[in-house]
Amino acid sequence: MRLTTDHRDGVDIITVDAARIDAAVAIQFKDRMREILGNEKPRYVLDLSQVDFIDSSGLGAIVAAMKLMPKGGKLELAGLRPAVDKVFRMTRMDSIFAIHPSAEAAASA
């Protein structure tokens, strides 16, 4: 599971370079997010535009990552593909995260 970080237009963007966040990689994803979020920037945007499948383990791992943010910090999401977006909407997790159409849109928000 590869995550890359980039600082664009004043925002710290974490890109998931993988097509799936599922039970097979949920722990790796959480561990890698813990490393990145340890830098304690106030706002991160998780770019999911390459992810076309997420299961409940993957969803749980993203929630777990959000809880690693320091108090007042924000983990936002961007670029949800339809199948991923549907999982967030069905579980109502779309009400917990700020969700942007793309990382670029998140940068200008």
Binding site: S56, M66, M90, T91
Partner: peptide
Amino acid sequence: APVDLDVSVEELPEGGFGWFLIRS
């Protein structure tokens, strides 16, 4: 059953979505 999201961030569920999704 759907998970309860009316809680603080620290208490948000990280699991328990599976059967809700299957049944839905």
